[in-house]
Design a protein around this nucleic acid. Sequence first.
DNA 1: CCAATTTTTGGCAGCGCTACCATTTTTTGT
DNA 2: ACAAAAAATGGTAGCGCTGCCAAAAATTGG
Lengths: 334, 334
Amino acid sequence: MTLDFRHHPAVTLAEVAEAAGVGESTVSRVLRDHGSFSNKTRDRVMEAVERLGYVPNRIAGTLASAGSRLVAFVIPSLSNIVFPDVLRGASTVLEENQHQAVFSVTDYDPEREEALVAAMLAWRPTAVMLAGFEHSERTLKMLRASGCRVVELLDLDGTALDLAVGYSNRAAGRASAEFLLKRGYRRIGYVGHDLDRDTRAGKRFAGLSEALGAAGAPLTDREIHAGGSSVESGRLGLERLLARSRDLDAVYFSNDDMALGGYFHCLAHGISVPSQLAIFGYNGLDIGRVTPQPLSTIRTPRVATGRIAAELVVTNAPPQVVDLGFELVEGATA
Amino acid sequence: MTLDFRHHPAVTLAEVAEAAGVGESTVSRVLRDHGSFSNKTRDRVMEAVERLGYVPNRIAGTLASAGSRLVAFVIPSLSNIVFPDVLRGASTVLEENQHQAVFSVTDYDPEREEALVAAMLAWRPTAVMLAGFEHSERTLKMLRASGCRVVELLDLDGTALDLAVGYSNRAAGRASAEFLLKRGYRRIGYVGHDLDRDTRAGKRFAGLSEALGAAGAPLTDREIHAGGSSVESGRLGLERLLARSRDLDAVYFSNDDMALGGYFHCLAHGISVPSQLAIFGYNGLDIGRVTPQPLSTIRTPRVATGRIAAELVVTNAPPQVVDLGFELVEGATA
DNA sequence: CCAATTTTTGGCAGCGCTACCATTTTTTGT
DNA sequence: ACAAAAAATGGTAGCGCTGCCAAAAATTGG
């Protein structure tokens, strides 16, 4: 019960050429506006294209020439707003430059990443965009052998294969620690999600712990939620953490979602923020600017990351690492 | 300054055949596990594949056979969480079935939609997924002529081209109105974003107004933000609305983002919810369950929409409309 | 007006693969 | 051991397009 019976096989360039009474290469030249042809010919061709409803077949076009103009994104998640933001930044640039975005989601699993990179490479993309620097040996080997551009996103703490665009998570962790210390907090806790899978969150945690340790105020306690990040696990995580360590004066969350959960817990339980407990997040989501007290956090250039990455790819820029930095937002919760 | 000098042109199937000492068709059969071949041959082929680092070229494969196994998403936005959610639901199913997702973003602009659909069709996708039923004449014509499956998502109020998966926005608007009326609210306001562009939000608004009108408690006032939806414009919108109409007892927001903004405005200004002002949203975001008072809203099956849509496509189901319904969440804000 | 350009045009190989068919090899049954 | 059936394998014609080259048509200059 397919619908195929409704349809003629798609119109081909040869049929357009026939209908317009010109050669195939002429049609091809007109459609790509490449090479020379008379106005009269162009009109005839365009008329036939219009009349037959011709849509060029890029599969064939790509095979015959070079460059698929496909950009593959292999991202860990779509729940974490970071990645839709990156896609958003990239997609504008890609569309302006007649590229298409293909994506798949690894769910933070390196094995899936490997399989998905292989599947993506089968499309001979112009570039593959990945999150971070941690990839399996085989993934790296495939990417190197593929000949397509590779962009590693959202991280700077590691060695880039080709292009990298992002900011240092480790430095962000340190900056957060220094801010909290400067404000006088000394008993600092951590509420986060799965650190091993989300290696960037892991690096922030490392930066935080390191800076706190160096200042003689090591992390007091931590509560780690096994799954992904969410507002709910932030709230729950804080509740559990406080049940164990009542005398914390600040909590660093693995990101703003988690931090908002923590903030809501405080609102609901009459814990005064920041006087009783300070809250600090990461990402600088818009929502954090509109909460009754603006969230103290680090704003990351997620959309810009996608945009710059796409720009480097479409301009075929030489290998380089672009540090987009981050901005500490003082907010009112810490 | 490209990197091309690093690379041999990619390994081809012919080279693998040569290296394994078998024919091309044999390699093809082994790799696709289709047709028959001896174990010895399979091992020889796989060894050569491994050794040469061969990655099949799907561009060529698709051209030679049929079915790109590409599914194109032409979505209005990535900022509105609805669409990442749909993509998330679909991508799991697609990956399990060896399909790839391609997407582009229209920014709610029908002309861009038209151009992007054309660009997508050039890849001869298995299916094109679109938001809603409102498309330009030319878009519809192209889709009909393309011969690929078309899935219209997240709406039910209109005529489907082929497949449709979603829920009735109009009914959701009505249900919200009925709930608010049942709770005794009579002076109801609306805060929303651009209704003309987001036609689904427009249909919810229509359903709401209609039901309120029918019950003899027509909408009291409304405040429309010209751009997209956001927490911030929700907050601002409510502030403006209240400045004009002080005696509202409930406000319906075009979605949960907007509603959260409104809720935060109330929290920040000591407006007691719901006794002084009730707040009602749409979408049923997770965050709304964790706010100090759970948000009253309508939970929509966004991820399921993506999942079901993908399932219909990979199983090549006959044309049909799937109503996934929605669920009214009473919450504590209305 | 004619030769020397320049512009416009068409033919066709080939991109890397799969589908189809023919052929060879192996297995089976008697 | 031999014919018949089954399994395994290879050759090759496209899929629809682009790139290259040669040919034809239009333009230019003296």
